[in-house]
Design a binder for these strands. Structure first.
Lengths: 206, 206
DNA sequence: ACAGACCCTGATCGATTGATCAAGACGGGC
DNA sequence: GCCCGTCTTGATCAATCGATCAGGGTCTGT
């Protein structure tokens, strides 16, 4: 960890501050949206000065992009692993692994689905950046898989994109709207990942 | 229109301004969230001065509540009509009417689902107000219907609330994330209400 | 014609926003 | 010891925020 990185002169002192800022910014952006989140509130939650966050990232927009890169780095790693472990399996097994992985991601951190649905609702430069840099690949992979499943008869017919967004909507909404659901059913325990999975299975597969 | 309303002294001059303000505020709240939307931007879009909007509604919070009342007034009218027309029918027919009604509402105005998912993601006084005043009744009605359908064997087993939010998620997401989907599939036409309906049918019914 | 209620606007308030800047703290290389 | 690049802070900027206020316009009732 303290080993010198060949030619790099930077001793990599406090990358921890960057990570704390990104974590706080993720929560703020996910709950209040881009304009609703303030850099001062993010800095306070991260325990640093507000100017430090502009020193590291340059602007609020650049901070948002850094948060998204960090977010989808983790997501793509998990999804790639799920697909790798079922490489030789059937299309249905690969799709199931993808679905289980996405549910697990949403269960661990509901902010992921929150932040994705915040930006997708109006055209903007941020949405364009997000789609081109992070969303396009996953959508393409999933839709290819769905189309192959439709060909071999294991997946329900219909627009692959609609099926893709439907399963994302079910898995994500159950967790991202947890505060609302908790107010509606205060005595009920948290929603279970297994129930969501069987629901999505019934929706996707024949 | 100019007819005197019995004892009421107010001539009800410009209620049109109120409605323009509410319409503009709905769009603003639905896309930018409560904190992200500014009263000046809303006033500009409505073609009035910013102070007029505080004259009519008192505060930004009160304007938000007025927008919600207007929004759910229309929704509850449509849902009540859908249920009334299938009063004598089977549970499945009543649920189908409810689903079709909700899809039609989302197709007409995607802002409804947008605004519902914006507030449900973090605990707040606004969410508490929204749940108690507008969401609780619809949730109760739908879940009762789902439970009855589960008893007579026409509806899939599972937590009624999860089934309820799943069908809302599918119907709403397809329209509220339309800008994102359009960027992903630029050549494709808009998503069809019929495709969504058959998808939800497969999810809900046995 | 006058008075009063309602509707609406422009100016302005203090607070907060994202961004900039000067200055200090810290540590490694000479 | 001294210097220099990195990291961090506090002060401060113009712009914008929600909210308040005084005042004018318009109509109705008398």
């Amino acid at each position: 960890m303290t080993a010198a990185k060949s030619k790099s002169v930077t001793p990599i002192a406090s990358q921890e501050a960057r990570e704390r800022i990104i974590a706080a910014a993720l929560r703020a952006f996910a709950t209040a949206g881009f304009e609703g989140a303030s850099t001062r509130q993010i800095a306070t939650e991260a325990g640093v000065a507000q100017s430090l966050l502009l020193y590291h990232f340059g602007s609020k927009d650049a901070l948002w992009r850094a948060v998204m890169d960090k977010l989808f780095e983790g997501v793509s790693v998990r999804m790639a692993e799920a697909l790798r472990q079922t490489r030789g399996g059937s299309v249905k097994d690969q799709l199931l692994a993808m679905i289980r992985g996405f549910i697990a991601i949403c269960a661990e951190d509901a902010d992921i689905h929150r932040i994705m649905t915040i930006e997708g609702r109006q055209p903007s430069e941020r949405l364009k950046w997000l789609v081109d840099r992070h969303l396009r690949v996953g959508h393409r992979q999933a839709c290819d898989l769905i189309a192959r499943g439709q060909k071999d008869g294991s997946v329900r017919q219909g627009d692959p994109t609609l099926l893709y967004y439907s399963f994302i909507a079910i898995a994500g909404t159950a967790f991202s709207l947890a505060p609302e659901i908790a107010l509606l059913t205060p005595d009920k325990e948290v929603v279970s990942a297994g129930a969501i999975e069987s629901l999505i299975e019934a929706l996707i597969f024949l």
